[in-house]
């Protein structure tokens, strides 16, 4: 049993740690690779920014172009593209600014806050992507389902409402899967940090 009053005594009599490192060993250490969570957040975030565009490279550009012309989508897709481009630049700028603010010399709480903020930018970016995918998707469905060309290909007495329902359900499932994957990565990276941040915030 150790009485609390004596704890400081016990603590202060602590000798040098048995794993004491020499100057040479410390010198070697500073050139080792870091395994910091911030490094992983940066790598994963950049992937999340870039991945949708890498996937685009694998789509057939000509057939999408023909598809847009066929269903009169070229104009609206251009508008979406311009909006999307501006929004993404804005996100990258905010992300970079937040990332720069992460400093290990800050207080424990401030560091956590900045890391969570940086990751939040990516969270909003993903939500925005899912949101705009939903808007564009519904827009495409609408254009296709109401076009005469498409209606001609349907068998007689096809119920358009059923068609809409099936399309929307499948589309929602795809978006939910994307959202789920994102939540998983986000949770894995920040779970511990969020618990600790909440603990510090308590009673403030």
């Amino acid at each position: 049993m150790v009485p609390l009053e004596n704890l400081k005594n016990v603590w202060n009599k602590q000798e040098d740690c048995k794993y004491k490192f020499s100057k040479e060993e410390i010198n070697k250490m500073i050139y080792q690779k870091s395994s910091s969570v911030v490094k992983w957040i940066l790598i994963i975030s950049i992937l999340e920014f870039v991945l949708p565009y890498i996937l685009l490279l694998f789509t057939d550009y000509d057939s999408s172009k023909d598809f847009y012309i066929k269903y009169d989508l070229t104009g609206i897709m251009k508008i979406y593209f311009i909006i999307h481009f501006i929004v993404i630049l804005y996100f990258i700028y905010i992300f970079y600014k937040n990332y720069k603010n992460i400093s290990v010399g800050n207080s424990v709480k401030e560091l956590m806050k900045n890391i969570i903020k940086t990751r939040k930018t990516v969270k909003y970016y993903i939500y925005y992507n899912i949101g705009i995918a939903a808007v564009i998707g519904v827009n495409i469905f609408y254009k296709v389902f109401t076009s005469a060309t498409f209606k001609e290909t349907l068998p007689e007495n096809t119920n358009l409402i059923t068609l809409w329902a099936i399309a929307l359900v499948l589309f929602t499932i795809v978006l939910l899967i994307l959202w789920g994957i994102y939540r998983l990565i986000y949770g894995l990276l920040l779970k511990k940090l969020k618990v600790n941040y909440a603990e510090l915030e308590k009673n403030e």
């Binding site: 395994s35 910091s36 969570v37 911030v38 992983w40 290990v104 010399g105 800050n106 207080s107 424990v108 560091l111 956590m112 890391i115 940090l193 600790n196």
Partner: peptide, 12 residues
Amino acid sequence: RVSFNTAISLYR
């Protein structure tokens, strides 16, 4: 400060 930050927030 740096040691706590690393142990609590950065270290994986």
